[in-house]
């Protein structure tokens, strides 16, 4: 994995106070001092951003070379952590630097809400509709926020952790038979 290898700069950086960001992320780290850049356990680049500055951040990331929109999804950390319940996860790819960036945006509330990034990456359109449909996260500024996977009259958001899988009990006939 080329994108997981730490750059030589990181390895030699002695002072822990300096944010350990790769050079291609330096403009982002400079412009967004409150964003947390970290490496996942398997060595992938993750940035944690507040939802209020998501659109600006994504715009800056696009200017910094992350030209390709890859993915947008959400994770429901129901009863797994204190603090915001959901993470909106945005995946970006830079072909120029051959790097990936994953942006985690914590959102919370009964009707969780995050800003839509369709103005920056129009490809997020269907992805945000999917997250709206399955998680019930409201994307403000989305041009066409409707259900996409399920019928319109569906009740609830099935990928939330407090929604059951929806399995029906399997009825076996002739259960008295000895198998």
């Amino acid at each position: 994995m080329t994108d997981q290898m730490p750059t030589p700069d990181e390895e030699t950086a002695p002072e822990p106070a300096a944010p350990p960001v790769a050079p291609h992320l330096a403009p982002l780290a400079e412009a967004f001092p409150e964003a947390k850049f970290e490496q996942s356990a398997a060595g992938q680049q993750v940035a944690r951003v507040e939802s209020g500055r998501l659109v600006e951040f994504v715009q800056a990331a696009r200017d910094a070379g992350f030209e390709m929109f890859i993915d947008l999804t959400a994770v429901d950390h129901y009863r797994q952590r204190s603090g915001p319940r959901y993470d909106v996860v945005v995946g970006l790819l830079s072909l120029k630097h051959n790097q990936r960036l994953r942006i985690l945006v914590p959102v919370d509330g009964d009707v969780p809400s995050a800003p839509s990034i369709t103005d920056v990456y129009p490809g997020a359109n269907f992805y945000e509709r999917e997250v709206y449909d399955l998680f019930g996260i409201d994307f403000t500024g989305h041009p066409d926020l409707t259900r996409i996977m399920l019928p319109d009259d569906w009740d609830g958001h099935p990928l939330r952790k407090d929604t059951p899988v929806g399995a029906v009990p399997i009825q076996f006939r002739d259960t008295n038979k000895v198998l």
Binding site: T118, P143, D144, R147, I148, D152
Partner: peptide
């Protein structure tokens, strides 16, 4: 009750510019 109204394309006389943009993305 079985029609999926909101996910469908609106006729031109009912669609606003925003609806049209939303169908294909803002680009």
């Amino acid at each position: 009750s079985t029609a999926e109204g909101a996910q469908l394309m609106l006729p031109r006389d009912q669609a606003t510019g925003e609806d049209v943009a939303g169908e294909g993305g803002t680009l």
